[in-house]
Amino acid sequence: MTAKKEVVMGASTENPAEIQDGGAMELVRVPAWEVKYKLDRNPDELAHFVCCRDLDWRRAVCGYEEPEAVILENPTTFCTMCVEVVQAHGGVPGSGRCPFDDQPCPDDETVDRMIDERTSRP
């Protein structure tokens, strides 16, 4: 888990007709590599947790959805509800393990590269 400001969870692709018709969220959203995020360096801004595997980083684990594409750099204040959701799933924020599937999270270098790719200019 990485502290970010926003995210959107993936859609189900179990219905083949929905996929063929382009109705699945993954097919109609802007691909993550095309979304450009703004970096916010305000340490007093409230940070939400998002899953690094999520394509858009648009909805926090607590359910909050930020309308702007912003990544909060080096936050100091975290959403209490995000922390509670992670703990309710048996996770520990910053432990390096995903609380939702118990898989290892990417290392800091990989997450930093993902952030660089999503915030760089085309």
Rank of each mutant, 00 (worst) to 15 (best):
D101L: 03
R58D: 03
K36C: 09
P104E: 11
D108E: 11
R118F: 02
V8H: 02
E14T: 14
C98S: 13
V50P: 00
C51G: 06
R118Y: 02
D56E: 13
P106M: 07
Q20P: 00
V50Q: 03
D102Y: 08
L39Y: 00
E18Y: 11
P106K: 07
T76C: 09
Q103D: 13
P122K: 14
V8E: 05
F100E: 00
Y64K: 11
K38G: 02
R121I: 14
V70A: 03
M81C: 04
V7M: 08
E34G: 00
A32S: 12
V70H: 04
E26I: 01
R41K: 14
C82T: 08
Q20V: 11
R58H: 09
R121E: 15
V35A: 02
W33R: 09
R29L: 00
L46T: 03
R118A: 09
E68R: 13
G10V: 01
C62T: 10
T13G: 06
A47W: 02
E14Q: 14
V28P: 01
D40V: 12
E6R: 14
N15K: 08
V92I: 14
W57S: 09
R118D: 03
E109S: 10
Y64T: 13
I71V: 15
T77K: 14
T110E: 09
V85T: 13
I115T: 11
T2C: 06
G23Y: 10
T2M: 11
R118N: 03
D108I: 12
T110I: 07
T76G: 12
V61Y: 04
M9A: 08
E14H: 13
F49R: 04
P104G: 02
F49I: 07
I71Q: 06
V8P: 01
P16F: 01
R97H: 05
P43D: 05
R53Y: 14
V85W: 04
G96S: 15
M1Y: 05
G63Y: 04
A32W: 00
R97E: 09
V92Y: 03
C52T: 15
G23V: 08
Y37E: 04
A11V: 00
A47C: 07
M1N: 07
C52M: 04
H89C: 05
Y37K: 09
C51T: 05
G96L: 07
D40E: 11
F100I: 05
